[in-house]
Computed example of a mutant assay.
Amino acid sequence: MNSYKELIRKAFKAVVESPTYDQTLIEQYFSPEYRQYVDGEELDFDGFCNHMKAQKLAVKHAIINFQTIVEEGEIVFTNHSVEVLTNEDRHALIHVIAEFRVKHNRIIYCNELTRLVSGDERERDLGSRL
């Protein structure tokens, strides 16, 4: 991996933007020690996997657009948006500010805040849905 920024980009492309759930890809990019704190919720690795399964059941299409991505040591900060099309053909735009930490070339930690910019209120919890 050339940079941890690139690791984050590749993880989002492979895991979040993909329309299918793939445990092997999650394990490639995320440590079994992974912890995620999102909008007051805490997820461990298994919780994150369940979150990704729930997202795949709800979302037909997702595109990540990084406005800013900054790397310092093993920490990566992102300011990004997620364009979503749900399986019910509802559109949503979600703004995300996140801090990631990387260890042994896998993501071990994420602390993020999400904000529904536009779309149906039912999509407000997509960042933490189980």
Rank of each mutant, 00 (worst) to 15 (best):
A54V: 12
G73S: 12
S118N: 09
H51S: 02
M52A: 10
T114E: 13
I97A: 10
E42L: 05
K5Y: 04
E33T: 12
V76W: 01
E83N: 12
L93R: 02
D89Y: 14
E33R: 14
T114R: 03
S3I: 12
Q67T: 07
H104R: 14
L43R: 12
R122Y: 07
I94H: 01
Y4D: 06
C110V: 06
Q23P: 07
V59T: 09
G119M: 02
L57G: 04
Y4M: 13
E99N: 14
S128N: 12
E17T: 01
I108H: 05
N65P: 04
V16P: 00
L93H: 03
L116T: 04
N111H: 13
R101A: 07
K5M: 10
V76Y: 01
T24P: 10
N111E: 13
F66I: 05
T24I: 13
T24C: 12
N87R: 13
A98E: 09
N50T: 08
R9L: 08
D44W: 06
S18C: 03
T114Y: 08
Q36H: 14
D46F: 13
Q36L: 10
P32A: 06
G47S: 11
R124V: 02
A54C: 10
A11K: 03
I108A: 05
G119L: 09
V82H: 01
F45S: 07
Q55F: 02
E74L: 06
Y37H: 10
G127L: 04
Y37C: 05
V15C: 00
F77R: 05
S118A: 11
I64P: 05
E6T: 04
D120G: 02
E112T: 04
R124L: 08
V70L: 08
R106A: 11
T114Q: 14
K60L: 11
R35M: 12
G119W: 02
D120V: 08
L116V: 07
R90F: 04
Y109R: 01
D22Q: 04
N50Q: 12
D39F: 07
